[in-house]
Design a protein around this nucleic acid. Structure first.
Lengths: 150, 150
DNA sequence: CAAATAAATGTAGCACGCTACGCATTGTAC
DNA sequence: GTACAATGCGTAGCGTGCTACATTTATTTG
């Protein structure tokens, strides 16, 4: 008998996305914008749009739009790269830096919430099974922004 | 140490969605359109737009747009309900019925693929842990189109 | 050095999610 | 029966994903 794992993944993704969306809305951010902010805060140098597109496997017009809205809301600013005048480096503004802390707190809260009531062994199993499922589907755990992965 | 379950869920969802999107594109359908087609094929009576919105937890304008495109492509047709002239019942056309079989084959293939190499016990654990995680995040396994759930 | 190629970004237009609003029909209350 | 609320659906407008095409700047190649 079949069990519809894919359906469960969809529902679980939907639930976590809803929670993140609601939490970030209070800071004037969307979930996608929040993920980019976290990336900006930990990237060694100010990245350009292309770095972000690669990290999250997004098309460059998508990133272009996201960054434009973040700039308009005062979370980031662009500075032209003097070495390569085609690209614009992205800098977190103070308002953005403040948000990142709260975003990461929210992420951590949801991490704990998802495996609430799991034993240590169950957590390890869950993680391992997820990684194997990802691998089966042709992915890798460090896809879609690989930063901060152990 | 924290393990970023949420990130894994995002990646796994992304991978499966990519695969479904590619497969359904060959039939001239998107993933969302495909899910609705499957629902139509198994719903006892021809549903109206509102039934679909409820089943998938989508807003009615979203459903409206999806159905409009399915109609334009000849997969479905609308018939006015004589009992309630506000609502329009949705009927699968032959072209739509043909697609459903192939869509469900694709889903089953991906179900098998995701747990490839899992023992029977591991499959049961994976399913159980997913259900508990969903429950922790305030969801239920039969959300987002509850049909065909055991 | 000039020309072709590659790279970074922007714009247009589409699908799919949302909220807010409007319109037509149905149901209810007086 | 008429007025008011509830229901079903449509449109408008936005954010986020995409592809395809254009533009500007770097790089490579002759």
């Amino acid at each position: 008998m079949n069990h519809y794992y894919g359906h469960r993944i969809r529902v679980l993704h939907w639930c976590t996305d809803q929670i993140m969306t609601d939490a970030l809305a209070q800071m004037g951010l969307t979930a996608s914008q929040g993920r980019i902010m976290g990336y900006l805060a930990h990237y060694p140098q100010p990245p350009c749009a292309r770095d972000i597109a690669e990290a999250f496997q997004l098309s460059h017009p998508t990133v272009s739009g996201l960054l434009g809205r973040l700039e308009k809301k005062g979370f980031i600013k662009f500075l032209c790269d003097e070495q390569d005048r085609r690209s614009r480096r992205i800098y977190l503004l103070p308002k953005g830096l403040e948000s990142v802390k709260r975003i990461e707190d929210t992420i951590m809260l949801n991490e704990q919430r998802m495996v609430q009531g799991f034993s240590g062994e169950e957590r390890e199993q869950f993680m391992a099974l997820l990684d194997r499922a990802i691998s089966n589907m042709g992915g890798s755990p460090c896809q879609l922004c690989s930063m901060k992965e152990d």
